[in-house]
Design a binder for these strands. Sequence first.
RNA 1: GCCCGCGUGGCGGAACUGGCAGACGCGCAGGACUUAAAAUCCUGUUGUGGUGACACAGUACCGGUUCGAUUCCGGUCGCGGGCACCA
Length: 803
Amino acid sequence: MSIPYNHRAIEQKWRKNWEEHPINVNDGKKEKYYCLDMFPYPSGNGLHVGHWRGYVISDVWSRYKLMHGHYVIHPMGWDAFGLPAENYAIKMGIHPSKSTAENVKNIKRQIQEIAAIYDWDMEVNTTDPDFYKWTQWIFVKMFKKGLAYEKEMPINWCPSCKTGLANEEVVNGKCERCGADVTKKNLKQWMLKITAYADRLLADLDKLDWPEKVKKMQTDWIGKSYGAEVDFKVEGKEESITVYTTRPDTLYGATFMVLAPEHELAKGLATDETRNAVEDYIYKSSLKSSVDRLQDKEKTGVFTGSYAINPLNNAKVPIWLSDYVLADYGTGAIMCVPAHDDRDFEFAKKFDLPIIQVIAKDGKEIENMTEAYTEASGTMINSGEWDGMESSVLKREAPAMIEKRGFGKKTTNYKLRDWVFSRQRYWGEPIPIVHCKDCGAVPVPEEELPLLLPDVDSYQPTGTGESPLADIEDWVNTTCPKCGKAAKRETNTMPQWAGSSWYFLRYVDSKNDKELVSREKADKYLPVDMYIGGVEHAVLHLLYSRFYTKFLCDIGVIDFDEPFTKLFNQGMITGKNGIKMSKSKGNVVSPDDLVRDYGCDSLRLYELFVGPPELDSEWDDRGIEGVYRFITRFWNLVMENKDKNVPETKELVKARHKLVYDITNRLESFSLNTVISGFMEHNNKLIDMSRKGGVDKKTLEVFVQLLAPFAPHISEELWEELGHKESVFHCGWPEYDEKAMEEEEIEIAVQVNGKTRAVVTIPKDAAKEEAVAKGKEALGDKLTGNIIKEIYVPGKIINIVAK
RNA sequence: GCCCGCGUGGCGGAACUGGCAGACGCGCAGGACUUAAAAUCCUGUUGUGGUGACACAGUACCGGUUCGAUUCCGGUCGCGGGCACCA
C-alpha cells in the first residue's frame, strides 16, 4: 500500500519550500505579466469563502502565466482609509489607526492561506504616509492644472455617515455604504473636474478588453447626448433663456418652457401677481431632498407670469418653474414639447397647457392624444418650412440649421458630473490646501508632503459639515506657504477612492521616496494586464482609476492612458437561496475550517467548481467532499502507477493529448468550473485505464503540470514523487497535438427525421455512401416509409428524412 | 418606465461555430467490504409506460425558420442586474 494523501503535511512542506526557494523571480529577461486583484479594505469580519474565489481565480491565472515563462507581477495591498474602516473603528471604540492595523494583520494571515504567489515586498497600504504622500501629490498636481476646484453647492449628504458623497456613491437615492436616505446639503466642496475627461473616458472604452456590461454601465453613466442649445427671448425683457434639447426637430411643438427652481433667472421672471407663488415654490423646492424630488409622483410647478418667444415662429410660450427640471444638467431650462415627450405631456395635462403635434404617427395626426408620441420617426407637420421632412433626418440636421440662423448652437451634454471630493470625516488623506485671506487656496508645497493626518482622540464625525480635524487648533492654524501670513488648513479629507484610483501604479515601485513611480519601472511593468474583482465598482473605482491614469499620463508620469487592459468580474458567492453572506444573516462561511479539514488545494478547486466564475454561486459545504475525493483518487492513481514503467499505448497518448486540449482551452476561455470537471472526468478515465493495464509516467506528469496552477501543493509533491528536482512551475505548460488525439473511427448518431434512432461506428472520414449505408443498416426495420433525403455531416450526424 | 442579462433533473451545473440534452459533482437508492459504523469501491438515478430490449414526452410558455433548435428569429410569462424626471 502506498502513502495516503495527507494534505496538512504536504501543504506545510511546500509553503516552507516556496518561502525558501521563491518560484516567481524577476530575472530581468522574462516578459512581465501583471495580474491584479482589487485590493480589499481591511474589514474586521475577516474573509469568507466569497472573497477567496476572486483571489483563487487571479492566482490560477498568475500561475498559469508563470508556467508560460512570464515574470508575474501579482501584488496585494490594503485600501485602508475611508468609511468602512472608520465606521468599524467607531463601532468598536478603537482608534481607526489601531483597528485598521489589527484587521490588516488578520486578513493578511487569511490571504496567505490561499497560497497565492503574492509578492509581499510590493505590499502597499493607502494609510501609510509614504503612500498617501503621493495621493496628496496627485491632488496638488490636479489643483495646479485647474482640475481640482472649490465650489459651494448643494451636494449629496448622508445623514448617517455625516459626510458629503459623490454622485457615484448614491444608489437609488441611498448611501452606497450604509443605505441611509441621502439628502442635500449646501457645502463648500472640493471638486475634481472629471467631466473634462468625459469624452476620452467614453471613447477609450473601445480600446479595452472588458466585459460589455461594464463598458455599457460606464457609457450610460457618462451619458453623452447630442442636441442643440436654443435661445428664447423673454417677452418684454432684455434677457433670453437658453434651453438644451436633444429634439430640436420638435421646436415648432414647443408650447411652454420650464426652468429649474434654482435657475438664476427664476425669481426675476415673476410678476407682481405671481411673485408670492413663485417665491414660495422656489423655497419649498429647496427644502426637498433628492429622494423626495424623485419620489414625487405628481408633477408640481408654478407659472412665472412671463412669456418667452419661440425664435422659429415667434410664438409666445408661458414660462413655468418645476423641480422636474434639473438645475445642474444642460442649461437648467427646457423647452417643452408635450406631444412628443412623456414628462412634458404629463405636465401639460396637469396644468392644462396646449399640445401641438409636429410629427405624424402612421402618417396622420393623432386624435385625442392620451400619451406622448416619443419616436423620432414620421413626417413633420405643423412645422412651417419643415413640414414634410422626415423627423429622424431633421433631428440630425436641425442643430446646424439653428446655429446657422443665429439663435442657438449645436452641442453635446453629459450626465457625468464633477466628482465631489471632500469628506467631512477623520479617516482619510488630509486635503493638502491652506486657505489664506490674501492668497486664497494655496497648495501645500510638494516638498512638504505628506501632510500627516494628525492623531486625535475624538475622531467621530461632527455632523455639522465640518471635519473632526477642524477642532484641532494647532493643526488648523498655520501660515500661508505663499505669503507667510497666518492661514488655516483645509480640514476636509479625501474619499476612500482617492488611494484606490492609482494604487496599482505604486506596487511596481512601492518603496520609491522620490517619485510616485519611476518612469523606467512604469514603462517596464505597467499597465495591468489582467484585473480581477467584483462588478460593484463598475462606475466607481473603475471610472475614477481611468480618470487618474489619463491625468497622470497627461502630466508625463506614465506613458499609457488606460490602467487595466483586461478586466474580469467574478460573481459573488452567496449563502443558501442566493442570500448575500453577512454576519447579521448568520450565513457566513469561513474558509479557515475548510482549509484545516480538506486542505488549501481542495478549497481552491472547490471555489472554482461551484459554478461559472463570472456568475454568482450558492455555497454548499457538502460539495467540497467531491473535490476532495477527486484529489485523493488522483493521488492514489499517481502513487500506484509512478514506478510501474507502463509503456505508452496509442490509447494513452490519445487520452493525454485530449486532456491537455480540454484543460488548456477551457482555461484560456476562463471556463474554470469546467476545467475542474474536466480534471475529474479525465481522472475517472485514467483510473479505469489504470485497472486495465496501468498509466504511463508521461501522462501522469502532464496531468500534474496541468493541475499545478489549481492545486499547487499536491502538484509539487507529486511532481517530486515522479522524480523531478525542479519546481513544477518551472517545467512549462504541456502542449497538445490535435492529430494525436484524432480517432480513426468515431461514433456518430443516426437520426430519422431529426430524431436519434441508432449510433454507429464509422471511419472518421467515411464517404457519404458508406456512412449512410452503415446508418441504414443500424436502423434496420426502424426505418420505414419512403426516403426523401439523406443528410450526412461528417463527424456530426447522419439524418435520414423519410415519409 | 427605459436598457442589459438569464430561465436545462431533487440540487450546483455541462453541451465549443445549430448535430446523441443532462458531462462532472452533490444528494438519494441499492450492493460489496465490515461484527457494526465511518471511509472506500461498484451499480442506478429527467419523467411517464413496460419485467425487458424499448416507446413516448421533455431545456419557462406559445409560435416560426431548418433535414435537425437548449442554441437562431418573433411574441408571452417569470427572475436578476443597471439607470431612473439627464429634456
